[in-house]
């Protein structure tokens, strides 16, 4: 079985910010989530098309 030392385990890249330390992949995911949240709130709803089957 392989040993982690032999594999030279990659710990990824981290952004240290005082007491806060966050991995770059986590930071990217969080930023994407915030961007999606803002877009979901601010983007206008698609304009409704005429649909003959609608009930109202």
């Amino acid at each position: 079985m392989l040993l982690w030392q032999d594999e030279a385990i990659s710990s990824g890249s981290y952004v240290p910010w005082g007491w806060l330390s966050i991995s770059v992949p986590n930071l990217i995911v969080i930023i994407v989530m915030i961007v999606l949240f803002v877009l979901a709130i601010t983007l206008p709803f698609p304009k409704e098309r005429r649909n003959p089957r609608r009930h109202s």
Binding site: I9, S10, S11, G12, Y14, S21, P25, N26, V29, M33
Partner: peptide, 21 residues
């Protein structure tokens, strides 16, 4: 691997994969 509890390790994953935000 930055997985210690006192360095936000609970949120991290091994390698460069996003962890458990």
């Amino acid at each position: 691997a930055h997985l210690q509890g006192n360095e936000w390790g609970m949120m991290n994953e091994t390698g460069s994969f996003p962890g458990q935000e």
